[in-house]
Design a protein around this nucleic acid. Structure first.
Lengths: 160, 160
DNA sequence: TAGACGTAGA
DNA sequence: TCTACGTCTA
């Protein structure tokens, strides 16, 4: 797929298979897998409601328990990245979209990792469901959102 | 040219002609025309001395008198871009390299402009010489560097 | 206009 | 580690 779709897709993107690898975030944008070039949460307005369509877990945040079939994703905002002037994360934008997606729609997960040579690789890891979300206090004492994500394929294999 | 050169070139880049157009800064990096993906001044260490090799004039700074064959380029630093906490620009990095290049080596000039549809275009505008530089005070009262750049081709045509 | 798990180079 | 005339979307 070399042409930007322009339309936001929930679920699998045609032509993209689990395990497909990419080097740059902009590639994810071009094929419509994850549009923000920096943001970790992609979402859209569906029937007047924000729903999450994909997330990138690159390890940029000091998150999370990552297993092969589940992960805990940290919400955005609150200056968690730059660590300057930390604030409570708000239930808006991507965080709101993930909350609205709980137990509802599939969310594409892209896992990013750092290579030995210093470059990065992004791997499409398939569809997940946001099982639940909660707030907790980070090391700085401010509130952050956490989203429990579980792989959907396993459920499908059981005969969904 | 699809392979990153890796080596820093002073003067014309083989295969790139004056007037060649590009859409993204990363393209300039790939062909070795201008390596920084954001920075306006590219430079290298040549014999222990920093020399400028190329600049991008996108209008990001509130510069400059731009004619077809000359322009006045504003130095970098001092928070001129984001306008927060302005400071005096320092004679270091790109600014130092441009200063060292005065009346010395050719500098590639790429002109950026905003398209009607909101996208950008970068046009390679050929080789220029840094005629002179000076400091002046910006609207915020802080010192900024200015570099007078004149097109080199005209001189060549006269039989340099 | 502002926010975002970017990217390359010094 | 930090700077930089980025780039996309809301």
């Amino acid at each position: 797929v070399f042409v930007k779709s322009g339309k936001q897709i929930i679920g699998a993107v045609p032509g993209v298979d689990v395990g497909d690898k990419f080097q740059y975030r902009v590639e994810l944008n071009i094929i419509g897998l994850h549009r923000p070039t920096q943001g970790g949460i992609d979402y859209g307005n569906f029937g007047g409601k924000l729903l999450a369509t994909s997330i990138v877990a690159s390890g940029g945040y000091a998150d999370d328990v990552h297993n092969k079939n589940s992960l805990i994703y940290t919400g955005q905002g609150g200056n968690v990245m730059n660590r300057k002037d930390p604030e409570d994360q708000k239930l808006e934008r991507g965080n709101l979209a993930l909350k609205n997606s709980v137990q509802k729609n599939p969310v594409r997960v892209i896992r990013g990792s750092n290579m030995l040579n210093g470059s990065r690789t992004y791997v499409y890891d398939g569809l997940y469901l946001v099982e639940k979300y909660w707030q907790e206090r980070g090391p700085h004492g401010k509130l952050v959102f956490k989203f429990q994500m579980n792989r959907l394929e396993d459920i499908n294999l059981l005969g969904n």
